[in-house]
């Protein structure tokens, strides 16, 4: 028994060393590749003063019961996660074109991160749940306003997992299951 344990430990230890070696080699290569500067075409250059922006489409509720698109310009951020964050920030601020915002007043985004497999984890303040009116239709509107807004603008985001106050919840407020990530629902949208 003792020798068996030693063998397992030995094997794991050598695996660890091997992984460490691979890890540092690949990081080194990455550094070399990314230091070569890319050429810029003149049209891409601009003056420092104007803020760079990006157009996104947000989905809000309309009186017909469907989600409708609304275009918005957001500041351009270098990372995907920051772009996605800015998009959700804009979304929960509410519509500028008279659509209905399916978010309780005071809802804030706490954190957003995106996994390599393209699942966005979107963590909202407790307000989203506590001030939510509950009801199947209301919960479906809230969830797919978020999900469709993210999956539509960022093709790297395939699915969206909604968290509240840092944790996974069974449901948003008694109806929609939050224990899994959602794909977008095009059938809820009218263009």
């Amino acid at each position: 028994m003792e020798t068996k344990k030693l063998i397992i430990l030995g094997a794991l230890f050598s695996l660890l060393i091997l992984l460490l070696v691979i890890f540092f080699i690949t990081v080194g290569e990455e550094n070399q590749v990314s230091t070569s500067p890319k050429s810029l075409s003149s049209s891409e250059k601009s003056s420092e003063e104007t803020m760079e922006t990006q157009k996104v489409v947000l989905f809000y509720l309309s009186e017909d019961g469907y989600l409708h698109p609304e275009e918005r310009e957001i500041p351009l951020h270098p990372s995907l996660a920051d772009q996605a964050k800015q998009t959700v920030h804009e979304l929960v601020r509410g519509s500028e074109e008279g659509y209905i915002s399916p978010f309780p007043v005071g809802t804030n985004l706490r954190e957003l991160y995106i996994t390599e497999k393209g699942v966005a984890y979107v963590d909202f303040s407790i307000t989203l749940r506590e001030k939510h009116p509950s009801g199947s239709t209301a919960e479906v509107s809230t969830i797919f306003s978020i999900v469709n807004s993210l999956t539509h603008n960022f093709e790297q985001i395939k699915k969206v997992h909604v968290l509240v106050d840092g944790g996974g919840r069974q449901t948003l407020k008694g109806h929609v299951d939050l224990s899994r990530a959602f794909s977008s629902r095009e059938d809820l949208v009218v263009w």
Partner: peptide, 26 residues
């Protein structure tokens, strides 16, 4: 997909962006 990058980058920004990408990669 209607993603439009409003303006381009100047090279300083690009370098900064590269640095950040490197950081993200590691």
């Amino acid at each position: 997909m209607s993603k439009v990058f409003g303006r381009g980058f100047d090279s300083r920004r690009l370098h900064q962006r590269n640095r950040e990408m490197k950081l993200v990669n590691s």
